[in-house]
């Protein structure tokens, strides 16, 4: 990583015991259950997990954009530059959104307003947060388009006139327009095809390096994580089951779920006859098991796994694992 002495940088974002639930007719869906992580300036944290693990809800929770109803942030703290975002009032929160923290959404096809020109949509965020005239805001929008690799002449066109990859560039331009300190990228490449994925990922990574913004990268692609993240949090059924630096996770995975994820990846160096998938399905978040959420699928499960949710254990400094096997000194 290009960051020297990363531990010297001030803490940018700190999420503590965040709990988010959705109240539905089928009961309470426990989407995020006591999530902890932190991010320093200029650092990139990868939030990895399968669909429905609570990654997007966590991100929306940080932005306080969880749709309410049915969603509710039950407890926890989200410190951004030392201030608890969950205690800010609506107006203060609006001042953070788009200015300090901005978000790149998953599906570029639907995340742009179809009846406004892309130029207007970029200029809008500039005008909300910076006291610029309309003309200056438009000028800034044109600059932003060029930064993300779209000719400025196209700013008067509408979203339907752009391809998926181009739309995602526009979304990125909106996210970057006010030079935020933190970017939350929610699976920014999932909806794009593979060649465009690489381009968009490079673009995000370069901009992040250039402006030294902090980034929370939500993905289910471990390849993406390996490429751009310095820290990784593995999420499963609303819990962070393993959390550490990229070296910790990739070279010394401890949690059976993390190991399972790597086992399911094709590897060029090893000769494997068949990939080993993780058996079973993720538990229903409205009806989580009493003990370890991964217990029903875990190859190393024991009687005590069903008793209670295991606490996070620091196996080496900065490397947290939520598994009782590791507490007993096993795990490897």
């Amino acid at each position: 990583m290009s960051v020297k002495n990363p531990d010297m940088r001030p803490e940018l974002l700190q999420v503590k015991d965040l709990v988010i639930q959705y109240e539905t007719s089928d009961g309470i869906v426990k989407a995020v259950n006591g999530v902890n992580f932190s991010l320093r300036e200029g650092e990139t944290l990868g939030l990895v997990g399968e669909t429905g693990a609570g990654k997007t809800t966590t991100a929306l929770g940080i932005m306080r954009l969880v749709p309410d109803p049915p969603g509710r942030i039950v407890s926890g703290q989200v410190f951004f530059e030392g201030k608890d975002l969950l205690k800010e009032n609506k107006v203060q929160m609006r001042a953070h959104r788009g200015k300090d923290i901005s978000m790149i959404f998953q599906d570029p096809m639907t995340s742009l307003n179809p009846v406004l020109t892309v130029g207007d949509q970029i200029a809008e965020v500039v005008r909300i947060h910076e006291k610029l005239s309309r003309a200056d805001a438009i000028k800034r929008a044109a600059e932003m388009l060029q930064i993300v690799g779209i000719p400025a002449e196209r700013m008067n066109e509408y979203p339907h006139q752009f391809s998926g990859g181009m739309k995602q560039r526009v979304v990125i331009a909106i996210a970057l327009a006010c030079s935020p300190k933190l970017i939350i990228a929610d699976e920014p490449t999932t909806a794009l095809d593979v060649t465009i994925q690489a381009q968009v990922l490079d673009l995000i990574h370069n901009i992040q390096q250039k402006y030294q913004t902090g980034m929370l990268m939500i993905t289910h692609d471990l390849g993406v994580v390996a490429e751009i993240c310095s820290k990784v949090a593995i999420m499963y059924a609303g819990y962070i089951v393993e959390y550490g630096s990229i070296e910790d996770i990739f070279e010394d995975p401890r949690h059976p779920y993390t190991k399972g994820l790597f086992g399911a990846l094709p590897n060029l160096k090893k000769k494997v006859h068949r990939l080993s998938p993780i058996d079973g399905m993720m538990p229903d978040p409205a009806n989580l098991p009493q003990g370890c959420p991964f217990e029903p699928r875990c190859p190393h499960r024991t009687e005590s796994c069903t008793q209670k949710v295991p606490e996070g254990i620091e196996v080496t400094p900065g490397h947290m694992v939520r598994c009782i096997c590791c507490a007993q000194g096993g795990g490897k």
């Binding site: 959104r97 901005s102 809008e124 965020v125 909300i128 909106i174």
Partner: peptide, 27 residues
């Protein structure tokens, strides 16, 4: 109101009135 671009508008820090009248109503 449930569309993604409404969430985008909120994520920009736009006020609720503008979100409803400019972004939602127009669509």
């Amino acid at each position: 109101i449930r569309a993604d671009y409404i969430r985008t508008a909120r994520a920009k820090g736009q006020s609720e009135n503008v979100v409803i009248f400019r972004h939602a109503l127009l669509n």
